[in-house]
Design a protein around this nucleic acid. Sequence first.
DNA 1: TTCCCTATATGATCTGGATCATACGGACCC
DNA 2: GGGTCCGTATGATCCAGATCATATAGGGAA
Lengths: 228, 228
Amino acid sequence: MTDSTIDTLRRLPLFRRLSEGDRASLADVAELVAFVRGQPIFTEGDPSRDLFILVSGRAKVVKAMPEGRDMILELFGPGDAVGAVAVYEEIPYPASAVALEPISCLRIARTDFFRLLETRPTLARGILTALTHRLVALTNRLVDRNGRVESRLARLFLKLAGDLGARTDEGLHIPLALTRQELADLTGTTVETSIRIMSRWGREGPVQSTEGGFLITDRRALETLSLG
Amino acid sequence: MTDSTIDTLRRLPLFRRLSEGDRASLADVAELVAFVRGQPIFTEGDPSRDLFILVSGRAKVVKAMPEGRDMILELFGPGDAVGAVAVYEEIPYPASAVALEPISCLRIARTDFFRLLETRPTLARGILTALTHRLVALTNRLVDRNGRVESRLARLFLKLAGDLGARTDEGLHIPLALTRQELADLTGTTVETSIRIMSRWGREGPVQSTEGGFLITDRRALETLSLG
DNA sequence: TTCCCTATATGATCTGGATCATACGGACCC
DNA sequence: GGGTCCGTATGATCCAGATCATATAGGGAA
């Protein structure tokens, strides 16, 4: 397993600049684990024993709101460290992480993580960068919660398109199947409202639902909507 | 100036654990500057040349929304580093920082900041901790934006009380003068709504406005409201 | 003093979207 | 086959709070 783990590490931006020795010692303590769609990686309130680094697939970090509603705090993709803050702060996971599709990730125990941090300064630098990026992203999420729901949904699809959109002859394809509920959790609205907008868009508008994802047929219209 | 700067550094949590030598080299590059209430420390879009560390007083970080409305992203107090992310990422300030009262802070130029980061690993560790704390705080801000406006306002006052409330015989006193507009910017509502709630609370409710701040007369009632 | 500007205050509307209700197709299981 | 989920869909109703409008009390500046 160790050899393929080293290969995996070599492909992740976070670890690409490490020396071979660093990567080897990291591979020693990292274990490759897989999850199916909908499976929790960890659950809100659990003691944070492990840090996870996404290798393939996407995951959501959700926080259960007091009224029972869920709120999606972040979407993670390959190379992102999930649960890093909880592990670093030695607090229980403040939110749950759930696989949005079949994923694989590296699991690193807290104790190993801290040992690595002490012995590999370059790793600390990489983590610092990752954290500042997440701070910027979270700030944007805060700002994004303003305006009409339709604008927020439009902005969400523009962001998804930027992150993982693939040009096809029919338009921009987003290969990520999100339920209307998940769209609602991402934009801070209710299922009914997200369904209403999505079905209207499906008829006349700029985004179609496809099996396994979405298709943006009119990016320009989406940009106009995102401002309103 | 350097001597008093070292004294100042010794009192900030972020730098308390540094060696005397570390502090001396930091004091060499830090300059103590003052701002009056309402004065911008830096402005959104400006190139991020300097990092600021608040020594006394409070400041707000605001982002101008497209519709002209302002949004307060964070409140900073003594010991907090303002503009750290922009400086570290070498991007223009993504938001403005404005003094909420007469403040003083240390200004450190980007180049000096990076030089310090390289030569003083303990400093990097301290910054890492500060960043994770801010991540947690920002996440809470995201979650806090749910529920009725009155609940959000109640939660805001409970947080302010926890941060800087002082017990008096009449109740918990918050020595920070925020305008109704700033309360609105913090809770994501309009001036009119924040004025309505504050004047109702002033008559019958749990929070009174005083010169120079607020007085919480019924913390229990505020906690009840914060859940609604 | 008068003028102007800002913060606070309060009333009168209007509406986006939450809430409640009902319905329908598909997947899975017994 | 007939249940029982779950995701999607759509209509009907309702209300918190945005918006618009107007008013009053300081606080400077001239």
